[in-house]
Nucleic acid binder design. Sequence first.
RNA 1: GGAGAGGUGGCCGAGUGGCUUAAGGCACAGGUUUGCUAAACCUGCAUACGGGAAACCGUAUCGAGGGUUCGAAUCCCUCCCUCUCCGCCA
Length: 425
Amino acid sequence: MLDPRLLAERRDEVAESCRRRRVRADLDGAIAAYEAVARLRGAVDEANRLRNEHQKSGNRKLEAAEREAHVAAGRRLKEAVAAREAELAEAETRLAAAAAELPNFIHPDVPDGGEDDARELRRHGEPPRFDFAPLDHLALGEKLDLIDFESGTRVAGPKFYYLKNEAVLLELALVRLAVEMIRREGFTLYATPDLAKPDVVAGLGFNPRGEETQIYSIANADLCLVGTAEITLGGLFADRVLDEAELPIRLGGLSHCFRTEAGSYGRESRGLYRVHQFTKVEMFAVTRPEDSEAMHAELLALEERYFQALELPYRVLDIAAADLGAPAFRKFDIEAWMLSRGEAGGYGEVTSTSNCTDYQARRLGARFRRSGAKRTEHVHMLNGTAVAVSRALVALLENHQRADGSVAIPKALQAWCGFDRIAPK
RNA sequence: GGAGAGGUGGCCGAGUGGCUUAAGGCACAGGUUUGCUAAACCUGCAUACGGGAAACCGUAUCGAGGGUUCGAAUCCCUCCCUCUCCGCCA
């Protein structure tokens, strides 16, 4: 959510953000709604003031006739307050609806365009050159008895899967490597709830309901399955006022992630790349406004370090405006090389880190107080993937396969999984 | 799941319709005084929104939301949460 007080003042910037993100929103409606809310709030305050004044004047012995007149006047004042309040509530509803449509501001360096217009910042490593016929992760998963998609579909539906044998240990090792890396960097570790209340989900900028939603809802409870621990980690700060000295805060969250993938059927529909459930270690940071850009660079550096440790070739993208989503001010993705992308291999997203500035914090009510200051300010919130296990597995299996049908395990992972290769049975 | 007890300011806690702009205490901050492993006293001390250069003023907030009333922390309804006991359970 944007600060409604800034809408009129920074109208051009907001309109530009909507245009570049290809979001249609009624900006002028939001501005008008805010002005109505401000005006009506004043009217309610004034009506209440008159009512309170009248009440105080009645705090004494009154003659019967006098009391009767007092009560009648009080009744009229009460009705006046109720009328103003109804108008205010209506205006607030309009403002909330209009403001919810408006996306965050955009960092000046963010490229224009959509999915295909990201700016490639750098590449690391070379895609492997195989002197044999390489297999994609589906074939490897079946041959090495690591992944069972068929049973996943039978038991839970399409895009669910079972990990088996070494793949289970690989999941634990990937998680453990990520957790150890960020713990050393001062991140406090959390294993989070996998469900959250809809208003927390919405507070982080996700849409918990509706046709397009990526979020599962629970049928017999007012709860959603989280799409990322960003939701539950961000929720920790809802309605909190932090001391400046506590910042920055770095959290690491281990959770399962659930996504409906509505509208994406038929797109990369086979394999682990796009699935309904996966395990993820998420980094989350809370900073002062002036520190969020440096923190964003720090999160990206950690993501790169992790994929370097896995000895995987990757590239770093500065995501274009229309692909940012509403909360992100700027977003960097890491794409690892995968055999199963495109005709003969390509880069596929494995991590994503966003600086959401104060967009989520405002809706959540996450604030801090500068030392000595009386007023509070909203914090900045950032998130980044340490590891999303399903996609890391795709890259790992496809990049590290050998001519003999085995898959080599990178050194950094061996200590945590206990083997250095996965051989055909 | 059943029964009971509760939710008041940073914390403890008083408060069963108007004298509460929420008593008192603790903690915290500033000051005064005496003095020395500190105490006493005085003053201040919530958040949000609006107005004001500021002092300050107005409004809202006693778990949340509705209701009764001229007037609600206080009465009524719904919901949420916490604690105790019982049942079930990894």
